[in-house]
């Protein structure tokens, strides 16, 4: 059986305008994709991304609102420079930057999240796994490691 790439999906809680899309993301994601809802993409720390990568996720997708339509004024732009530069740095040390993808959803992009995830999944399958960062060792049961 072919294993699907593991995708950590950071979703801004406002970016899915249509209710069915949000429902799908909330309830019907395949097990290979994990939803991490955040209040704004501007809230995502580079450490979150790094941890998803080092935790063994094959890809990280971040879906948020278009900057001019951000729920917190233009807040999601404030972290944008960080994320962009973080990807530059990852690329510099030889990590595939394509494994981290930003998607900006517009209000009228009904159904786009499904397409984007499928597309990302395909893209991840094409990428080689040679340069992935060292993964964290799993914490012993019961011990606080998070």
């Amino acid at each position: 059986m072919e294993t699907k790439p593991k995708i950590a999906l950071f979703q801004c809680q406002w970016c899915l305008y249509s209710e069915p899309d949000q429902y799908w993301v909330d309830h019907n994601l395949p097990p290979s994709i994990r939803l991490m809802k955040v209040s704004c993409t501007g809230r995502i720390n580079t450490l979150h991304i790094l941890n998803a990568i080092q935790g063994g996720a094959d890809g990280v997708m971040i879906s948020g609102c278009r900057p001019e339509k951000c729920h917190f004024k233009e807040g999601n732009l404030s972290a944008l420079r960080q994320h962009e530069e973080f990807l530059n740095l990852l690329d510099y040390i030889g990590y595939e930057r394509d494994r981290v993808r930003f998607v900006w959803l517009d209000l009228q992009d009904r159904g786009r999240i499904q397409q984007e995830l499928a597309d990302f999944e395909n893209k991840l399958q094409e990428l080689s796994t040679a340069n992935t960062l060292a993964t964290r060792i799993n914490a012993p049961e019961g011990e606080v490691h998070v």
Partner: peptide, 14 residues
């Protein structure tokens, strides 16, 4: 959406 909650969610899955 605290860091703690996010990371627990992430590690729980990974």
């Amino acid at each position: 959406y605290t860091d703690k909650a996010l990371m627990e969610n992430l590690w729980d899955w990974l």
